[in-house]
Simulated assay, not measured.
Amino acid sequence: MATNKNQHLVPRCYLKPFTRDEGNATIKLFNIDRKRFVPTAPVKNQCSGSYFYGQDPTLEEAIQSCESAYASLLRKIRGPGYSLDNEDKCFLRYFWLVQHLRTEAASRRSVEEVAEAESVIGGGSLSFAFGIKEAVLMAMDAVAEAAPIIDDLKVCLLKNRTGIPFVTSDDPAIASNRWYLEDRRTVGCSFGINASGLITLLPLTPEILCLAYDGDVYSVQHEHGWVQVRNAGDVRALNQHQILNCFANLYLPETASEEDARSQYADCAHHRLAVRHKLNYAVPESEHEGYVRFVVTEADDSTRKGEALLHLQTLHPKPTRWPSLLRSRKPGAVYANGTAVNYVRERHALAPDSINPFRKERAW
């Protein structure tokens, strides 16, 4: 049986650098829904719940081992003269993935997607309805399978040299994609972690942020793995991702003021999405040479009678600005095969597909 009943989905070792005097007791937060600033919220109550990971001691031990390794690496990163090496890059990618999949916000979105699919199909047609805890456990099971997918991403650390600190949130491990959100070829499309142009973001402290990116699409100037960020606008651009992605709470370091938190929120609040998925329901329209053409329609009593396709599409918030340090690599390279897979990075385009081979295209 698991030894800890109160289990954190955003670990306390992660939040510690953002807490008051790094004492891990209280933290400043800004609640998005109520627009309420709380200067001393107890850390023990943040992003936690009873047996979120169930009562499997093996899983709990694995999570604790990962968190311990992260805390150790962060101490090394903050030490003098640190240079980012390949082993640490690998772990930072892995920790980002664990955190990206494990939060209550991510799991709640999965639950809402399944619940909406059930409501559209009706009649208890789905046999895999689940709750938040089940979604968390499913996400943790997916980590090992998903980890190799992001091994090709470039990794660097951003050192904040401005007077505006990095902020974090209850869903801090961000997956975004400037190329997908701006290129005309991908209008209306979703992206996954194998996509061309992927960007991942995870603030480590108020002064350090880990950035991973598709090196075929972007270029970032760095030295020994470090990027010196001296432009306050770049910090605000990076903070926008936390504001747009968080479920309920932004977490602010002691140096952050309520006035600046409200100002940064106001800059991009209108870009927060009310829902993070769209359900598309399609029915057969015609058939030709063994291929069936489907058309998107409304789900009602008449369309539910026969065959149908159900597609849950993830929606992604788009910030109002991007950091200037993230430059376009021209001409760059993206890969597509004309199917709903859309654009993927080179590694994921190498698998042989005699029917739909991937082709290389210019990114910019």
Rank of each mutant, 00 (worst) to 15 (best):
M1W: 08
A2K: 11
A2P: 11
T3R: 14
N4T: 05
V10Q: 10
L15K: 06
F18T: 06
G23Y: 00
G23P: 00
A25I: 13
T26G: 02
I27E: 00
L29R: 14
I32C: 02
D33I: 01
F37D: 04
T58L: 10
E60I: 03
E61S: 13
C66H: 15
S72M: 02
S72I: 10
L74N: 01
S83V: 06
L84D: 08
N86H: 10
C90N: 13
F91M: 07
F91L: 08
V98Y: 05
Q99I: 05
R102N: 06
E104N: 14
V111L: 00
E112A: 12
A115I: 07
A117E: 13
E118F: 08
S119Q: 15
L126W: 04
L126Q: 09
S127P: 01
F128S: 03
G131N: 12
E134L: 01
A135I: 01
V136S: 07
M138F: 15
A144E: 11
E145L: 11
P148M: 12
I149Q: 14
D151R: 11
K154S: 12
V155D: 04
G163K: 15
F166K: 03
P172E: 09
A173E: 04
I174T: 01
N177H: 09
L181M: 15
E182M: 03
E182Y: 03
G188M: 06
A195K: 10
S196E: 02
S196N: 06
S196I: 04
G197I: 02
T205L: 10
L209T: 06
C210A: 12
L211H: 03
G215H: 12
D216I: 00
V217R: 08
V217W: 07
Y218C: 01
G225N: 05
W226R: 06
W226L: 08
W226P: 07
R230C: 14
A232T: 14
G233T: 11
R236P: 02
Q240P: 04
H241I: 04
Q242D: 00
N249L: 08
L250S: 01
Y251A: 02
P253E: 02
S257N: 04
D260L: 12
D260F: 06
A261R: 13
R262E: 12
C268A: 10
A269M: 06
R272K: 10
L273W: 05
A274V: 15
L279W: 08
V283C: 03
E287W: 00
E289N: 15
E289A: 14
R293C: 11
T297V: 11
L309T: 01
L310N: 04
L310T: 10
H311S: 13
Q313E: 11
L315N: 09
P319V: 03
R321L: 09
S324D: 15
K330N: 09
P331Y: 10
G338F: 08
V344T: 05
V344Q: 07
R345M: 15
E346P: 00
L350H: 04
L350M: 14
L350W: 02
A351L: 15
I355Q: 13
P357K: 12
F358W: 12
K360T: 09
E361M: 13
A363I: 00
